[in-house]
Protein backbone atom coordinates (compact mmCIF):
# COMPACT_ATOMS: atom_id res chain seq x y z
CA UNK A 1 0.00 0.00 0.00
CA UNK A 2 1.26 3.46 -0.85
CA UNK A 3 2.00 6.03 1.82
CA UNK A 4 -1.20 7.84 2.82
CA UNK A 5 -1.77 11.47 1.96
CA UNK A 6 -1.16 12.95 5.41
CA UNK A 7 2.16 11.20 5.77
CA UNK A 8 3.14 12.31 2.25
CA UNK A 9 2.32 15.92 3.12
CA UNK A 10 4.45 15.77 6.29
CA UNK A 11 7.31 14.11 4.40
CA UNK A 12 7.23 16.80 1.70
CA UNK A 13 7.43 19.48 4.42
CA UNK A 14 10.42 17.78 6.07
CA UNK A 15 12.34 17.20 2.85
CA UNK A 16 11.63 20.77 1.69
CA UNK A 17 13.06 22.12 4.93
CA UNK A 18 16.24 20.02 4.69
CA UNK A 19 16.80 20.92 1.02
CA UNK A 20 16.31 24.60 1.80
CA UNK A 21 18.85 24.52 4.66
CA UNK A 22 21.51 22.77 2.53
CA UNK A 23 21.05 25.19 -0.37
CA UNK A 24 21.16 28.23 1.93
CA UNK A 25 24.31 27.01 3.69
CA UNK A 26 26.03 26.31 0.35
CA UNK A 27 24.96 29.65 -1.09
CA UNK A 28 26.11 31.79 1.83
CA UNK A 29 29.40 29.91 2.23
CA UNK A 30 30.13 30.37 -1.47
CA UNK A 31 29.22 34.06 -1.33
CA UNK A 32 31.47 34.56 1.72
CA UNK A 33 34.52 32.99 -0.02
CA UNK A 34 33.85 34.83 -3.30
CA UNK A 35 33.30 38.26 -1.73
CA UNK A 36 36.36 37.85 0.51
CA UNK A 37 38.41 36.70 -2.51
CA UNK A 38 37.27 39.63 -4.64
CA UNK A 39 38.08 42.09 -1.83
CA UNK A 40 41.61 40.63 -1.82
CA UNK A 41 41.77 41.00 -5.63
CA UNK A 42 40.96 44.70 -5.35
CA UNK A 43 43.11 45.30 -2.27
CA UNK A 44 46.17 43.67 -3.84
CA UNK A 45 45.46 44.63 -7.45
CA UNK A 46 45.79 41.03 -8.67
CA UNK A 47 45.42 41.00 -12.50
CA UNK A 48 42.67 38.77 -13.99
CA UNK A 49 44.35 35.84 -15.73
CA UNK A 50 43.08 35.47 -19.31
CA UNK A 51 43.73 31.76 -19.37
CA UNK A 52 42.53 29.14 -16.95
CA UNK A 53 45.47 27.50 -15.27
CA UNK A 54 46.60 25.08 -12.65
CA UNK A 55 46.09 27.17 -9.52
CA UNK A 56 47.88 24.95 -7.05
CA UNK A 57 50.49 22.24 -7.40
CA UNK A 58 49.73 20.50 -4.10
CA UNK A 59 47.65 20.68 -0.94
CA UNK A 60 50.59 22.39 0.79
CA UNK A 61 50.68 24.99 -1.97
CA UNK A 62 46.94 25.59 -1.52
CA UNK A 63 47.16 26.03 2.26
CA UNK A 64 50.19 28.31 1.90
CA UNK A 65 48.14 30.52 -0.47
CA UNK A 66 45.17 30.39 1.91
CA UNK A 67 47.14 31.44 4.98
CA UNK A 68 49.00 34.21 3.18
CA UNK A 69 45.57 35.51 2.02
CA UNK A 70 46.00 35.04 -1.72
CA UNK A 71 42.79 35.80 -3.63
CA UNK A 72 42.99 32.65 -5.78
CA UNK A 73 42.78 30.38 -2.70
CA UNK A 74 39.47 31.92 -1.62
CA UNK A 75 37.99 32.03 -5.12
CA UNK A 76 38.96 28.37 -5.49
CA UNK A 77 37.31 27.46 -2.19
CA UNK A 78 34.13 29.28 -3.23
CA UNK A 79 34.01 27.34 -6.51
CA UNK A 80 34.46 23.99 -4.73
CA UNK A 81 31.69 24.85 -2.26
CA UNK A 82 29.41 25.85 -5.12
CA UNK A 83 29.93 22.62 -7.10
CA UNK A 84 29.54 20.44 -4.02
CA UNK A 85 26.28 22.05 -2.85
CA UNK A 86 23.91 20.23 -5.25
CA UNK A 87 25.90 17.03 -4.83
CA UNK A 88 25.51 17.17 -1.04
CA UNK A 89 21.81 17.93 -1.52
CA UNK A 90 21.51 14.57 -3.28
CA UNK A 91 23.53 12.69 -0.64
CA UNK A 92 21.63 14.15 2.32
CA UNK A 93 18.27 13.54 0.60
CA UNK A 94 19.06 9.81 0.53
CA UNK A 95 19.24 9.82 4.33
CA UNK A 96 16.21 12.10 4.67
CA UNK A 97 14.05 9.74 2.60
CA UNK A 98 15.36 6.81 4.62
CA UNK A 99 14.33 8.52 7.84
CA UNK A 100 10.84 8.92 6.35
CA UNK A 101 10.93 5.19 5.50
CA UNK A 102 10.22 6.11 1.87
CA UNK A 103 12.40 3.40 0.34
CA UNK A 104 11.28 3.99 -3.24
CA UNK A 105 12.81 7.44 -3.11
CA UNK A 106 15.89 6.19 -1.26
CA UNK A 107 16.36 4.06 -4.40
CA UNK A 108 15.63 6.91 -6.83
CA UNK A 109 18.05 9.29 -5.08
CA UNK A 110 20.78 6.65 -4.73
CA UNK A 111 20.65 6.03 -8.50
CA UNK A 112 21.14 9.78 -9.09
CA UNK A 113 24.15 9.80 -6.76
CA UNK A 114 25.69 6.77 -8.49
CA UNK A 115 25.31 8.46 -11.89
CA UNK A 116 27.17 11.53 -10.57
CA UNK A 117 29.98 9.24 -9.35
CA UNK A 118 30.20 7.50 -12.72
CA UNK A 119 30.37 10.93 -14.43
CA UNK A 120 33.37 11.86 -12.29
CA UNK A 121 35.10 8.67 -13.42
CA UNK A 122 34.15 9.28 -17.07
CA UNK A 123 35.49 12.83 -16.73
CA UNK A 124 38.83 11.61 -15.45
CA UNK A 125 39.06 9.02 -18.24
CA UNK A 126 38.34 11.67 -20.90
CA UNK A 127 40.94 13.92 -19.37
CA UNK A 128 43.51 11.19 -19.71
CA UNK A 129 42.50 10.38 -23.31
CA UNK A 130 42.44 14.07 -24.31
CA UNK A 131 45.65 14.91 -22.48
Amino acid sequence: MAIDEKHLEAEIQDINKIVSIILATGMYTTMFFYIFGLILVFARGTPIPRLSQQYFHSFGDFFAALFSLHARAFLYLGTITLILTPVSRVIISIFAFRREKDYKYVGVTTIVFLIILVSVIVGSVFKISVG
Binding site: L51, S52, R72, T79, I80, V120, G123, S124, F126
Partner: peptide
Protein backbone atom coordinates in the same frame (compact mmCIF):
# COMPACT_ATOMS: atom_id res chain seq x y z
CA UNK B 1 33.09 18.46 -11.93
CA UNK B 2 34.47 17.34 -15.29
CA UNK B 3 35.58 20.87 -16.20
CA UNK B 4 36.99 21.34 -12.73
CA UNK B 5 39.03 18.12 -12.93
CA UNK B 6 40.21 19.04 -16.44
CA UNK B 7 41.33 22.47 -15.15
CA UNK B 8 39.15 24.58 -17.47
CA UNK B 9 37.72 26.84 -14.78
CA UNK B 10 39.02 30.40 -14.34
CA UNK B 11 37.98 31.27 -10.79
Amino acid sequence: VVYFIAGGINV
